[in-house]
């Protein structure tokens, strides 16, 4: 899981162009949206693309993202439960 979390953080930093951040700057339990990283609706859609491209997880409904992208921990758990690659 630790390895997945680090890889996930690096993926997020890369696809969302969070150039000023390092994995250590992202709290595993902090909300990804709202405060925190200052992400917006386009970032949420980009994360949906990343989920499919990197982990083979296809979200049918973008609203599902709300629950899954709650925090790094929640996201990593979802990925490890549902990944197909």
């Amino acid at each position: 899981m630790k390895e997945l979390i680090l890889q996930l953080k690096n993926n997020i930093i890369q696809v969302l162009n969070l150039e000023d951040l390092t994995p250590a700057d992202i709290d595993n339990d902090a909300p990804l949206f709202g405060e925190g990283l200052g992400l917006d609706s386009i970032d949420a859609l980009e994360l949906i693309v990343m989920m499919e491209k990197e982990y083979g997880i296809k979200l049918k409904n973008p609203a599902e993202g709300k629950e899954i992208f709650k925090s790094i921990n929640v996201m990593a758990q979802y990925i490890s439960d549902h990944r197909t690659k």
Binding site: V15, L16, N17, I42, D43, L45, E46, V49, E52, K53
Partner: peptide, 9 residues
């Protein structure tokens, strides 16, 4: 093909 919304906008 993974169309990127962040690029499209």
């Amino acid at each position: 093909s993974f169309p990127s919304p962040a690029h499209f906008v």
